[in-house]
Design a protein around this nucleic acid. Sequence first.
DNA 1: TCCATATGCAATCATTGGGTTGCAGTAAAA
DNA 2: TTTTACTGCAACCCAATGATTGCATATGGA
Lengths: 107, 107
Amino acid sequence: MPMADAALPVVFAALADDTRWNLLVRLGRSSASASALAAEFPVSRQAIAKHLAVLEETGLVSSGKVGREVRFTAVGARLSTVARELEGIASGWDRRLAAIKEQAENP
Amino acid sequence: MPMADAALPVVFAALADDTRWNLLVRLGRSSASASALAAEFPVSRQAIAKHLAVLEETGLVSSGKVGREVRFTAVGARLSTVARELEGIASGWDRRLAAIKEQAENP
DNA sequence: TCCATATGCAATCATTGGGTTGCAGTAAAA
DNA sequence: TTTTACTGCAACCCAATGATTGCATATGGA
């Protein structure tokens, strides 16, 4: 039975910001450095660096040095894990609430 | 191919707050009114009412009047939808990034 | 009817967090 | 070696928002 992971809200917070979400989707197409992303997005490189730090802390992106730049990549496996946890929680609700409804109608 | 739903960050924002997440999980066990929840949580009824409003706007809970109170219930189907969208996006990343890696190794 | 209980609305407060600018450090390239 | 470009850290600003208190408004039950 999947437990309601207390760390989930942290991941949600990471995904909740529009700029950060767009960055993540962008990195899903191909990896890139903070400077390269700054050329594509209407925010400063430092702002992007902060977003990438948040995404990396939650495991949604990974980074590695290539030459003198730091290349970031989206981690699909992390998102899949979140998806499965959500699915488990949701189905739990449906089963439980259906059971309560059933019990209420057949006393 | 699942598109990166632009409305997803709104749902994530709704799920990102700890108190709100705990409320949602609580409602997954059984439906309850704002006043009843206020007796279980260490925040005011008005704060809870705001959280419920946010959750309802994003379709994560539904409400109905029972007597003179408003009863709220978690909507598992909404969470399942989000889960499937995430799964689709994540698998897309994996396929694409694997293809890029493959291409880089076999030029 | 009268009262208790549940909800709704408004104003206010404090914290969080996204964004910026500025500067320092460092390593590849010429 | 000198230069150029990418990164990292720090301080600051401001809008968003979670939370509170207070009051007004029903509405079901005794």
